[in-house]
Simulated scan of single mutants.
Amino acid sequence: MSAIPRAALLLGLAGLLPFVWGALTLLSDGAYAWGIETLGGRFVGPYVQLFYGTVILSFMSGVLWGFATKASGKQAATCYALSVIPALWAFFMAGGGPVSAGVNLIAGFLGLLILDWQFWRWGLAPQWWMHLRGLLTGVVVACLLVGVLT
């Protein structure tokens, strides 16, 4: 098993900031007030989480597409087809209000983790991939749950 490369870990953790910030503004009136005043309404509460979550699911489709380039034949076709699912999920399922959108994004990130595992199992993702993806997905889901449950 390989350690997660430092750059990948740091950038992955930095990518959690909008999710964590959104959860914090839901749990703290002071953080919410500061965020509204300084950043605007789009960058607090579930709004930042939901918008950023759709962006990240789409980004992860691109990552999986990159992994698919390592496959060949029928497996490549399967991988390319699977790689577009997170972006399509975000496009079709991240509307309808903050609670349903949050629930659907949680499902999308958990589904993405299954796709990550499959690409990793096929040897298309780096050895360290699931360690990183498990950590990041756990934090994302926990933060989105704050938005769904508050």
Rank of each mutant, 00 (worst) to 15 (best):
Thr54Arg: 05
Phe109Pro: 00
Ala101Asn: 07
Gly30Ser: 15
Phe91Tyr: 15
Gly102Tyr: 00
Trp128Ser: 05
Ser58Thr: 07
Tyr80Ile: 03
Gln118Trp: 09
Ala7Val: 14
Val84Glu: 05
Gly41Asn: 14
Tyr80Ser: 01
Val44Gln: 05
Ala23Tyr: 04
Pro98Ile: 15
Val146Tyr: 04
Pro46Leu: 14
Cys143Val: 10
Gly108His: 02
Gly134Ser: 12
Gly66Asn: 11
Val141His: 05
Trp21Arg: 09
Lys74Arg: 15
Arg6Leu: 14
Ser100Lys: 14
Thr38Lys: 12
Leu27Glu: 11
Trp65His: 08
Thr38Tyr: 12
Ser100Asn: 14
Ala8Val: 10
Ala125Ile: 00
Leu112Ser: 05
Phe19Tyr: 08
Phe59Lys: 02
Gln75Leu: 14
Leu10Val: 12
Gln118Tyr: 12
Gly12Leu: 10
Trp34Tyr: 14
Gly123Lys: 03
Arg42Cys: 13
Ala107Thr: 07
Leu113Val: 11
Arg133Tyr: 06
Ser83Ile: 05
Ala142Thr: 12
Pro86Arg: 01
Cys143Thr: 06
Ala31His: 08
Ile106Pro: 10
Phe43Ile: 07
Gly138Ala: 01
Ala94Tyr: 04
Ala7Asp: 15
Gly40Met: 08
Gly12Glu: 09
Ala87Thr: 01
Arg121Phe: 07
Trp120Lys: 12
Thr25Ile: 08
Leu11Phe: 13
Trp89Asn: 00
Thr38Glu: 12
Arg133His: 08
Val63Arg: 01
Leu145Phe: 08
Tyr80His: 08
Phe119Arg: 00
Leu144Pro: 03
Ser28Phe: 07
Gly41Cys: 11
Ser28Cys: 09
Leu24Lys: 12
Pro46Ser: 15
